[in-house]
Write a protein that binds this DNA or RNA. Sequence first.
DNA 1: TATATTACTGACCGATCAGTCATTATCTTT
DNA 2: AAAGATAATGACTGATCGGTCAGTAATATA
Lengths: 234, 234
Amino acid sequence: MNLPLSQAPPEAPCEVLATRRRRKDARPSELTAAALALFVDKGFAATRLDDVAARAGVSKGTLYLYFSSKEALFKAVIEEGMVAVLAAAEEHLANHQGSAADLLRELLLGWWQQIGSTAMAGLTKLIVSESRNFPEMAQYYHDGVITRGRALLRRALERGVGSGEFRPLNVEAAVDVIMAPLLMLAISRFSLCLCGQQVAPEAYLETHLDLLIRGLQRTGAISERPSNEGMPCN
Amino acid sequence: MNLPLSQAPPEAPCEVLATRRRRKDARPSELTAAALALFVDKGFAATRLDDVAARAGVSKGTLYLYFSSKEALFKAVIEEGMVAVLAAAEEHLANHQGSAADLLRELLLGWWQQIGSTAMAGLTKLIVSESRNFPEMAQYYHDGVITRGRALLRRALERGVGSGEFRPLNVEAAVDVIMAPLLMLAISRFSLCLCGQQVAPEAYLETHLDLLIRGLQRTGAISERPSNEGMPCN
DNA sequence: TATATTACTGACCGATCAGTCATTATCTTT
DNA sequence: AAAGATAATGACTGATCGGTCAGTAATATA
């Protein structure tokens, strides 16, 4: 095969050849962090456990002290990522006031800050790539993350439609349409120059929100928010 | 490892145990078709060449008569897909009249018919998944498909903005924002229940177009097209 | 039917890599 | 300091799979 191996030198031992240490508590999270980075970069199948262990500053044998198999490691990576994701979701659920348009804006920009701009975004590509080979994993991610995110968006849209701020629309479809640019943004960050990387994420999100809120609002209802502020046309 | 192997029985020999045949001309396309199906389903690394050959009704040795390596087979799959994609792009380029909104509608629905609804859509997931491991492949796909598609959309948007039908906007960002739901639709078709699969593709696209065109048009310009026609709200 | 050509085969090889385990090094306890 | 406990190691194994090639059989030609 001879893959082009785009890897940087595998995590130079900055800890100046530290002698081996016994750190039972720290190992699991260090290993899942290393695994996340490599899985996201090279994909699940192409990632060698030797490399994961090396990146975590440990031998492969040690990895097997904490995870019973490569798949178990994968599950742990997903599960650990979930925690932050769900916490962010809770945060968004808590405080929602003002117009539906502002709520929508807050939700999408919050997603970017909490997830999209972090390493967590890599999970999106990982799941997309591997879901067919790990159906129960995909199901878990779907139920725990996607469904939850959809529920947030759906609520925001329904509130806007109910109050008359937004016009009637197919809410279920709109939820997916609204999420898609976010997911693609996350994916493109971990997938060499496919789409969207020429445009800065902020401008991308701002354009999405701008188009979206105008598209949602009742005809005639002029946005009271100063639109196009600081956004160059072309 | 012991992957769950979601495979159906690997292409039961419908050709009733046909004795071996010499069909030099037909082999390459049969092999790339088999490879596309398996690559899209299981990913590149997890696909075995024995399975590709078996699915094409041939032995692995025969595969190597036509393709020098697994990666060469991958390239051929992409390249073969390209032909149809570029043909469709040319078609869209040729005939464009009427309003910019109609052109946009025609472009997006055309994408669905020519690409999104076909097996070609699987290439999107394939590229997303494997681009890091095959940079030159990603580059080729980017230059040959993404850039071309973006150019089409950009032209449509610029026409609308130029004629005053659309309001001024960040065209580059808008192109990506508009493409994202299409790409996610393609991806979700080959990635177990991640997003968008609960909603029928037609309703999804219609909602996208509806939101989009309203979002693009100048405030006050009422769409002359009967919107919401046959689309249930919720 | 005999001969030549070549598409096709499948057993085989070598490299890779997930997973194992006997051994070693570190830390704790007394 | 000695002994016990266990975290960590890395050489090893067995299975998998990309890639090879000597041989086989289908077709063309005479």
